[in-house]
């Protein structure tokens, strides 16, 4: 996607968030509203000005035909891996999810041989168990209670 276009969309989103935050802050009591209201009003004004300047800049660049592209598909695939892993933890618990995630990722993305992936996963899961026991680290609870 075009970087400038994405920047305009992002700035517009921030502008909307600040405006919404300012309107919501008006519903708070006096002592709770002053800080978020100051911040969100300042944010709305500044993001509005910045958005305006970016739109003008974009029109100028369009005339010149300058475009900087940012990758979208590859990052989305990797973000999907992380989201998938989180969902797996939620469903079957950290240990099982980590085992499945590591083997799958190492084989599919890192191009590890299956034996090497199993071996690396075994060590990683072992380290998780040892550190969790020694440092009394808690794991997220899953639907099946593991």
């Amino acid at each position: 996607m075009n970087k400038e276009k994405l920047n305009v969309i992002f700035t517009f989103s921030i502008f909307i968030v600040f405006v919404w935050a300012a309107i919501t802050a008006l519903t708070f009591s006096r002592l709770a509203q002053f800080f978020p209201l100051y911040v969100s009003v300042a944010g709305s004004i500044l993001s509005g000005f910045y958005l305006f300047s970016e739109i003008i800049k974009r029109f100028k660049q369009k005339e010149k035909g300058e475009k900087v592209r940012v990758p979208i598909i590859r990052p989305c695939i990797y973000i999907a891996w992380v989201i998938g892993y989180i969902l797996l933890i939620y469903l079957i618990g950290l240990l099982l999810a980590s085992t499945i995630f590591l083997i799958a990722f190492l084989v599919v993305e890192s191009k590890f041989a299956i034996f090497k992936a199993l071996y690396s996963t075994g060590i990683a899961v072992g380290v998780i168990i040892v550190l969790s026991t020694l440092l009394n680290i808690s794991w997220p609870q899953s639907l099946i209670g593991i």
């Binding site: 600040f18 935050a21 919501t24 002592l31 709770a32 978020p36």
Partner: peptide, 20 residues
């Protein structure tokens, strides 16, 4: 400013009221 707004999520220091 985004950081300040994110930091204001939760209870207000001056009064028992929850925000955002």
């Amino acid at each position: 400013l985004m950081g300040l707004l994110i930091g204001s999520i939760g209870s207000a220091p001056a009064i028992t009221e929850y925000r955002y």
